[in-house]
């Protein structure tokens, strides 16, 4: 960890301005991710801009049935919010299955979707990593890659995105509200993260200095019947080997709308449009769910230690869909 300066921002404008004042500046909110990365020398900010005093912590229910999560709302606050649990069960479940209570009390919603990968080569500055040092290579492709991606990776990077929440947000059609130097904009969550391709150092569509102000959960046909399944080695306090967020709108036994998203399998929270297409218009039964699992995992490839994730993802998809799509 390096020596650094610290500044506290009191409103969004001063946060943006302070951030712009130093090319080595970084935002800090809960600090549960950036401090870890600093301890490992993966990031070495010269200035930390503390945004925790900004008025962005509220959780507001919207008249149309949606919920707006302030970017600084903690994971605990959102997970414990009655409207979130009732209207977006997968979102609440994903949070409660994340990290530990202590971390959830500190970590914020905005920071959660910005988490950096747990790839051991990214987090070890002695190792080759194109994300950390573009052009240095990817040591994970033929290395210790049990936790790595089976879809969406490139020759440059096969890391996985660690957020549970972001996977659930995909199943809820969430919208990320951002304030930047040129004003405010709203970014659908499925266009927020970007695949590594040849530029694995770029992880989201955000520009430097952009500040997430809120994450909006709009009312959708299927969000109320959603479920988050997380598979991991130990029973708690571990990142997902594979996770599934599924939401289904089933009427008269037929799937009218579906969202199917996977965690632990790709460099970004992975939405499976193929899986969703295999569901919509079909009867909500085991055969359909198995077909969706096949469709969602078609084209996946392993790199050795992570080969099992493909079969595991199929089984997890079937399990999650059965949970939400079972005739009630």
């Amino acid at each position: 960890m390096n020596a650094f300066r610290y500044a506290q921002a009191h409103d969004a404008a001063s946060a943006l301005a302070t951030m712009a004042s130093d090319p080595g500046a970084a935002y800090i909110a809960g600090g549960t991710n950036v401090v870890d990365l600093m301890k490992d020398d993966v990031v070495r900010p010269t200035l930390l801009v503390d945004i925790t005093r900004l008025p962005m912590r509220g959780i507001d229910t919207l008249p149309d049935g949606g919920v707006r999560l302030g970017a600084l709302a903690t994971m605990s606050e959102v997970a414990d919010h009655a409207a979130v649990a009732a209207r977006f069960p997968a979102v609440a479940q994903s949070l409660l299955l994340s990290a530990s209570p202590q971390l959830r009390n500190m970590a914020t919603i905005g920071g959660n979707v910005m988490q950096r990968t747990r790839c051991a080569y990214f987090r070890d500055v002695s190792q080759a990593c194109n994300k950390r040092v573009p052009g240095s290579g990817c040591a994970a492709i033929s290395g210790v890659n049990r936790q790595h991606a089976v879809v969406g990776g490139s020759k440059q990077c096969i890391c996985t995105h660690p957020s549970d929440l972001a996977v659930a947000l995909l199943s809820a059609d969430a919208i990320v509200h951002v304030r930047g130097r040129s004003g405010d904009r709203a970014i659908p969550i499925d266009r927020f993260h970007v695949l590594p391709g040849t530029t694995p150092q770029r992880e989201t569509v955000l520009e430097r200095g952009d500040l997430i102000t809120a994450v909006e959960l709009p009312a959708t046909a299927s969000a109320r019947t959603s479920f988050y399944l997380k598979v991991r080695d130990r029973a708690s306090y571990e990142f997902a080997l594979v996770s599934v967020a599924a939401s289904l709108d089933v009427r008269a036994g037929t799937v009218r709308a579906a969202r199917l998203a996977l965690g632990g399998v790709a460099p970004i929270p992975w939405r499976s449009h193929d899986g969703e297409r295999a569901l919509v218009g079909k009867p909500a039964n085991a055969g359909t769910f198995a077909a969706a699992a096949q469709a969602a995992t078609r084209g996946m490839r392993g790199y050795g230690q992570n080969d099992f994730k493909i079969a595991l993802a199929q089984r997890a998809i079937v399990r999650a869909l059965s949970q939400v799509g079972a005739p009630s």
Binding site: R234, S236, F239
Partner: peptide
């Protein structure tokens, strides 16, 4: 201790 796994209470 995130990736070297020891049992937590839930285990």
């Amino acid at each position: 201790l995130a990736e070297y796994l020891v049992p937590v209470n839930a285990d």
